[in-house]
Write a protein that binds this DNA or RNA. Structure first.
Lengths: 210, 210
DNA sequence: TGTGAAAAAGTGAGTTGACACTCACTTTTT
DNA sequence: AAAAAGTGAGTGTCAACTCACTTTTTCACA
């Protein structure tokens, strides 16, 4: 499946947009610059330069610098809107995994891939969260909205009387994912073998779940 | 013990410094403002305002704005320098814990408290890491320098033939700590019961270690 | 299919405002 | 009375944004 793959959020949104090639270059340049130097330390001259356009062009389709940031982050928010989340849940439900481990393997590797593929946007988002506390709450709500419905069917299917499965059961998994993902977010140049990490997480976590 | 406690890094460094009260207020104001709005979005007028001093005063002891940021972050770096790290290791080694669980309980709660107590400085630091990729490497090196020597004696004492204890054994612990600490860093207003979190981590993790 | 006029896209020198920093002066401390 | 600390109006720079103009694209109609 891969609802969202391959530096996807931006790629998708560019494909769907009716922006000219130069305007698309502006967005690409901003993703690179914002993720590397931060929004505040990136000048519109920097952007125009890297995008290979004039400063005036930058402002033809974006009212101001802030609007470019929003244009970059919007797909991240959009990817958690019902439509996409439903697609994910449907996909997850459809596959009828015949074991808890298989279901978890899918869920873990899918979400890790999402983070790895979109690490630049996530970096920019994280920068913004650290500077705008309000954002944290909506981000958390967003994440839950995506996570909970994807995971509930699993709870229903695989929970056993002796080993009741709750949302809290996922904390160790989430923690381990974080130990693999945080470095990649903080230093995007790092490589991560998602399948290998997933395997390690599963071997660490399965004993406690069965 | 608590090598570093109670919004400590700043408090300690203020106590040791020969800064006047107004200059100390400048640093306190900067910690609040930088951690809330970010370094770049905080103006020197903001700082002077909150500190209750004139803008000129801000510049009497700090050559420029950047130097204030460094003054704030320096204790964070200093706390990982050999002297302090040694103190921690000595303390850890001295206590001669009679079980792995007791040793872990100490280590986990101590480090979590450190993060909780210094969350504002850590926030500012994280902002900076996200904007200056070089910093990541030195931060990781710093963290390891502090972590590894504190943990090695434990490995030696409690590792058993059937259950060899390696650095990798700590990954699940670290992951679980992250799940509790990240929210507090991202939203400093949140409360965290460190002892309770430590207990939960231990019950989740001990079975696999014994 | 070629023409030209209107619309859309792009340009970059110029304007404006904000913010980091200075300095001649005043107040406080030693 | 000398030194240290503090002041705040003033200055210079720099970056976001504008706008009058040029270039490219679109498309109605001969």
């Amino acid at each position: 499946m891969q609802v969202n793959s391959v530096e996807t959020l931006l790629a998708n949104s560019l494909a769907q947009s009716d922006l000219s090639e130069k305007q698309q270059n502006v967005l690409k340049a901003c993703l690179k610059l914002f993720s590397e130097q931060g929004y505040d330390r990136t000048t519109t001259a920097d952007i125009a330069n890297l995008a290979g356009v004039s400063e005036g062009t930058v402002y033809k389709h974006f009212k101001n610098k802030r609007e470019i940031l929003d244009a970059l982050l919007e797909p991240l928010k959009a990817s958690v809107l019902p439509a996409v989340a439903d697609e994910f849940v449907a996909e997850t439900g459809k596959q009828h995994f015949d074991s808890l481990e298989a279901a978890l393997r899918f869920l873990i590797s899918d979400r890790m891939r999402f983070v790895v593929d979109n690490r630049l946007i996530i970096r920019v988002f994280l920068q913004e969260v650290l500077v705008n506390t309000d954002l944290f709450d909506s981000a958390l709500a967003m994440a839950k909205q995506r996570f909970v419905p994807a995971v509930l069917p699993m709870l229903a299917n695989f929970s056993q009387p002796q080993h009741p499965l709750t949302l809290e059961s996922f904390r160790p998994i989430f923690g381990l994912m974080l130990t693999y993902l945080l470095p990649v977010i903080l230093k995007p140049a790092l490589q991560l073998d998602v399948d290998q990490a997933t395997a390690k997480i599963l071997t660490s976590v399965m004993p406690a779940l069965t």
